[in-house]
């Protein structure tokens, strides 16, 4: 059995990294908002999904105009990423402004309920806009970066099979890495990043020290949503077909990743995302084998969920989180 697992390991790692990178960036959005407002922003998965649709819509439009054919693909991608992330960034800020800010003093339960409401609203908005425009809410974008690259992993170790990936894998991974590094730099090295950390630690005191708390929170939503939206575009390019409901389960897993890494912890979210992606791919490739066919790949979502429960049971503060106590 071990040999069989090893055969597929290189491919599992590649696929896991691609998926994990996506989880990681979406997890960032959850973790930043949670760190600052202690709110599970359910709508974040839908921001990701909206990003996927906006990006695909732009790509389809550009193709229709014939621009894609004349433009270098990377430039087109960059353009789409920038436009999409700015748009979803503003959507995220708008959601905070309209739906969350008035409730900042309300019981947490109410805010969570609004978040769920926003999430449903977005799903349906995207659904009927797409459906009205295209007659179908399942959307397939123009194929880009689909050439396959072979990796001769068998030459590294003979038990490995060769692996392969689409060019888009490199795109996903590189763009994700750039986004994460930039965000990490922004948070740790800039004035606004410092303000964000201050507000996350103690909102009232930061306000007294002259930090504009509302602006900082708005910024957090903008950044998280912009990253989430851009990730949606990456997802659409990597996996091809999207529908308005992709954000839901993916959001759930990204949140799991955030908890796994230690909620509120930026680097933890990145690590948790990658780890979850790899674990999930591993499970979906080997679950049948490891359980003698009792459980198959269809249980991979259950697997992610089981990880969430296990983390909550045994290490609720996550891998990099620290135990925080409510001040009484």
């Amino acid at each position: 059995m071990l040999a069989e697992i090893l055969h597929t390991l290189p491919q599992v790692l590649i696929d896991g990294l691609a998926l994990g990178a996506i989880y990681a960036i979406v997890a960032l959005g959850y973790t930043m908002v949670y760190g600052i407002l202690e709110l599970i922003n359910f709508a974040h998965g839908e921001i990701f999904m909206t990003g996927a649709f906006i990006g695909t819509a732009i790509l389809i439009t550009l193709t229709g105009l014939g621009w894609i054919a004349v433009m270098p693909a990377l430039l087109a991608l960059l353009l789409v990423l920038v436009i999409t992330s700015v748009l979803t960034g503003f959507i995220g800020m708008g959601i905070e402004r309209i739906a969350y800010r008035p409730l900042r003093k309300a019981p947490k339960l109410i805010t969570l309920i609004t978040a769920i409401g926003v999430s449903f609203l977005l799903q349906d908005l995207v659904r009927f806009i797409t459906e009205v425009k295209r007659g179908n809410y399942i959307l397939t974008g123009p194929s880009m970066f689909t050439d396959r690259v072979e990796v001769k992993t068998s030459s590294v170790l003979s038990v490995f099979n060769d692996a392969s990936f689409k060019e888009s894998f490199i795109i996903v991974f590189v763009v994700a890495a750039i986004m994460m590094i930039t965000l990490d730099f922004f948070i740790n090295k800039t004035k606004w990043g410092t303000a964000m950390r201050a507000v996350a630690q103690d909102r009232d005191t930061s306000a007294l020290m002259g930090v504009n708390v509302n602006k900082v929170i708005g910024l957090v939503f903008f950044l998280g949503s912009a990253l989430g939206g851009a990730t949606g575009v990456l997802f659409a390019i990597q996996y091809g077909t999207i529908d308005p409901y992709i954000g839901f389960i993916l959001g759930l897993k990204a949140f799991t990743a955030a908890v796994l890494g230690g909620i509120g912890n930026i680097r933890g979210a990145m690590f948790g995302g990658i780890l979850l992606g790899v674990l999930e791919m591993f499970a979906s490739a080997n679950l049948t084998l490891m359980t003698n066919g009792v459980f198959g790949a269809e249980y991979k979502d259950v697997f992610a969920f089981a990880i969430l429960i296990l983390v909550l049971l045994f290490k609720p503060e996550g891998i990099f989180g620290k135990v925080v106590m409510e001040k009484v």
């Binding site: 739906a99 008035p102 409730l103 309300a106 109410i110 805010t111 309920i113 609004t114 769920i116 409401g117 926003v118 999430s119 449903f120 609203l121 977005l122 799903q123 349906d124 908005l125 659904r127 009927f128 459906e131 009205v132 809410y137």
Partner: peptide, 23 residues
């Protein structure tokens, strides 16, 4: 358009009720 038929708009309606009532 069929996409906007009320029977299909449940998510929208429910989402809106949740937001409006919570707010």
């Amino acid at each position: 358009p069929d996409a906007l038929s009320p029977a299909k708009m449940q998510r929208f309606i429910f989402g809106a009720i949740l937001i409006l009532f919570a707010l």
